[in-house]
Design a protein around this nucleic acid. Structure first.
Lengths: 215, 215, 215, 215
DNA sequence: TGTTAACCGAGACGGTACGTCTGGTCTTAGA
DNA sequence: TCTAAGACCAGACGTACCGTCTCGGTTAACA
């Protein structure tokens, strides 16, 4: 059939314009109102060119988000695990709330649930690099005795990240930074080493600190 | 303009056939391949009739799921909180895995993320009745001293339910019943009353924190 | 199937309202934009009632035109054949140009060309009664020696009436009264008795009369 | 808004298939039972393609008739005016009676009466080219002294062509060739030059009339 | 440096679903 | 039994996108 195109000769101008058009249109119209046709027009590209390089609208938008690279793929390691987790979770939150990327990411996420191929690409390009960093950071914490050696990191992942997704998916307000702190606190408490010491102190400090009622 | 139709004269036969056709087609073809046109044909209804009563494919499927009522809206209360939670979470899981309802629910969930109206309807008809039951059950547990009196039930909701959604949304395997047990155990451990045995130290620290539950 | 309704119990109010609504809507929107539904709404009748008594929109409008009875079915007989013909042809013209009936008649005429049943009804109720009068009038003229005894009255019919229809059908301006005179003059000339006398004189007078340049 | 399509890149295959399908379907089902959808299916074209190039069913069928070109647009000139007129009128008749074009032409004619745009197109593409030829032929006859120099050719047009339309429109049998001869004879008799033999008396009276041909 | 193969924009194409509309039938309740 | 009201099935309407395609025109790697 159609032989694969030669990536070397690909027009980078056209590629960039397409990705930018995709993000802009998502921000302007919402993901579902965006069509490949509109992206092509906005980008000054032809539909054939777009379909030569991407299989679907979702794939374009996914690549555009990846390229934009809002949330860093690296994970801070400041020896304060709770703070580092907070930093990272806020980074994830920002992808949902970002003016330009939010609608695009929401769209890709939704479409991925109905398109296994897109879902896999989404995991591989956006989710797992960051997840792996999180894993590594927590394993480091285990090595340093800040977490129980038998702590189940998969559970930790779920307890920390899942609430963001659940609230997004069901249309509830996303967690506030304060709420994230609460989640981190609860999670680390269960995963703390048998003789909880330093870390838990820091925790309490944070909890007692300012009378930070939300919003 | 278009005045609302008279619900009294509505054909129940047509309504039921439409809902059944919607579920069947979702199971056969997958949500995104289902069209209103196909539902109409399968149901032996006319498109006009369908659009008279539902605004979109999503609304039809949502109502069909609600009507099918796979997961019970009632929450067991056997005095064993962990077991009751497990029962309930398995009920939620079954909506995702059910042969007939799974694809439909997945579709509505995905579409809801792009359609605020559908999302709200989804919450009101499917999610919140069950969530409210869960809330009530946990409040009962608090009254009986099985949970800390100041346990943050919103956090508990997130810790228990969110992993199912996150895994579904990102295309990871859903939690197994064993994994659900693990989640429940972790969660209840943090929310256990101060007098609880294991890891009671960590518990007390947490319980001492100021009563800062917003909202 | 549906047994014929009992005409005795028919609601005359509903019938009259329907016919009036049909004519009014034709005048307001043009025949093709009128729907049975709109007629029913305007008349305060239900569609079922209308379909019980008329088979189609065309039949309603046809009956409405007949009832309105703009052009008289009787033919004047003043001993001046040309003048009588002119009177009659102007009557026919008026059906096309009448503010209220014109659009309705145009519609029925057009639809009749595609619906043999309607066409037949049209001929029987509107066309032939008037045509028969015309025939009779000309036969009288023959008896009085104003026309050749062997004049072909079918040809006369065509020569006199057809130009109106041709111009209407093709969208040309309808004949003016002056032009009708010219047609009558030409026609009577060919059908005049061998020794053309009185009639032809009157004709010439008319032709010479005023410097009647058109329009 | 919708910019006009580029006619150069138009698919001639698709165009021809559409026109053929339109004529065939008219012949098979009758004009009013034909839908644009059916034409598209039969032609193997998509509806979008059809609507890109034609505004309505009527426009398609009109172009198809024009293209089929049953009745020649040229007018014979054999020095026998009556014979030439007969030839031409038979050509017109044949458009009504042709197995394939008849139903199509009938439909366009009927629809034109309710759609001024279609009517104008009909006149410009089908009617007037032939009418102009007829005019020219008769003017030639005048030059050769076969018709009175002051004969009103507009009236002649009406007398000759109109009966066909009237009979068609009202659903009467179309004129037979013999009847056409009779019409031609009657018409030419009124328009013959003063020096003509038969019924020259009547002719002269008419010819003496003042030169009142308006328009 | 000239050839040529692959890219590119443009946009027409066959499909197909959309959401709306009308035609005609049928049901219900009321007079 | 007729009526008004209006829901119903059927299916065409004209529009919008889809993903494919053909067309010249341009560009860049290689001869």
């Amino acid at each position: 059939m159609g032989k694969p195109p030669n990536a070397i000769r690909r027009s980078d101008k056209s590629r960039k314009a397409t990705l930018a058009a995709a993000l802009d249109l998502c921000a302007e119209l919402g993901y579902s109102a965006v069509t490949v046709e509109a992206i092509a027009n906005r980008a000054g590209a032809s539909k054939a060119t777009i379909y030569r390089w991407w299989p679907s609208k979702g794939a374009i938008v996914l690549e555009a988000i990846d390229e934009a690279g809002l949330a860093p793929k690296t994970f801070p390691d400041t020896d304060d695990l709770a703070a580092d987790l907070h930093t990272q979770l806020c980074g994830i939150l920002s992808v949902f709330t970002d003016q330009r990327l939010g609608p695009a990411f929401t769209g890709v996420l939704a479409e991925g649930q109905l398109d296994p191929g897109l879902s896999q690409e989404l995991r591989e390009r956006l989710i797992e690099p960051r997840l792996a960093q999180c894993y590594t950071r927590m394993r480091n914490a285990q090595d340093r005795g800040q977490l129980a050696t038998d702590a189940d990191l998969d559970v930790a992942m779920d307890l920390l990240h899942a609430p963001i997704y659940r609230r997004h998916v069901l249309g509830y307000p996303l967690p506030t930074p304060d709420y994230l702190d609460k989640l981190i606190e609860h999670t680390l408490r269960v995963l703390a080493p048998a003789s909880a010491t330093t870390s838990s102190r820091a925790r309490r400090d944070l909890a007692e600190a300012p009378p930070n009622h939300p919003e």
